[in-house]
Simulated scan of single mutants.
Amino acid sequence: MKLVYVFDAYCGWSHGFSGVLAEVAGRHPELPVEVVSGGLFTGARRVPIREFGYVQGANAKINELTGAEFGAAYERLIEDGEFVMDSEAAARGVAALRAAAPDRAAELAIALQRAFYVDGLSLSDPDTYRRVAEAAGLEPGPVLAAFDSATAADDFRRAASFGVDGYPTLLAVDGSRVTVLARGHATADEVDHRLSVLSAR
């Protein structure tokens, strides 16, 4: 059995789930974690952030429920309103980091979300991946090369193959059996309980 974490790096609720993901992965080192990017902000939704008027209210709710941090640099992006979230570029970056250290995919996905939601860095900017790679002790050159050549399509197809249409979604995958452990919000204890029920079957 493995865990499959389907998220979008530009999704505030995914950022809010980061602590739970880290705790679940820490409690279950025997379970590999595959990270798959969804496409929340693509096509017609790739517009200046000011057009999503609900963002600040949603972030307040996420902070209240999860304690997730939203940094001053990110808040300035919201206030300016010009920034465009591009989930395709973010998915390419996730793929590049994942290729560099597959067994650290969850940790790197969390770090990437912090780069945006705390440090206010664009996930379309190669320098963001340089920073994340260096902070994780990875050689940045291969990550940057992979970011240039990666595509998001495989991730988007894989997310769709699981029937995921909301982020974050945490799945337990055991052969052909796929079980939803969390969608949107859950505690680590709730995920643990669902895993224990699965193990007892």
Rank of each mutant, 00 (worst) to 15 (best):
D155M: 04
F70D: 03
I49N: 13
A135S: 12
E75V: 04
I62M: 06
Y167G: 06
R157N: 12
D119F: 10
G120E: 10
L108H: 00
D155F: 04
L171R: 03
V94W: 08
R92S: 09
A115P: 12
P140D: 01
E69W: 04
E51W: 07
R76Q: 15
I62C: 03
Q113G: 11
A106W: 03
V143F: 02
D154I: 06
G53F: 10
V55C: 02
R114N: 01
A150W: 02
T66R: 02
A146M: 05
A146F: 02
T128W: 07
D119M: 02
E69V: 15
Q56F: 02
A89D: 06
R98W: 01
L77T: 05
L97W: 13
G166H: 02
V55L: 15
A135P: 06
E88V: 13
A95T: 15
R98I: 03
A105Y: 14
G53L: 11
D80S: 12
V118R: 13
R76F: 03
N59W: 13
L97T: 05
A106F: 01
D154A: 15
A115T: 09
P126Y: 13
F83T: 09
E139D: 15
E51Y: 11
V143A: 03
R50Y: 06
G166E: 03
P168G: 00
G53T: 15
F52H: 13
L65N: 10
S124Y: 10
A146G: 07
A68Y: 12
T128C: 00
N63A: 15
R131L: 15
L123K: 14
S87P: 08
R130V: 05
A72Y: 00
R104W: 01
G43Y: 12
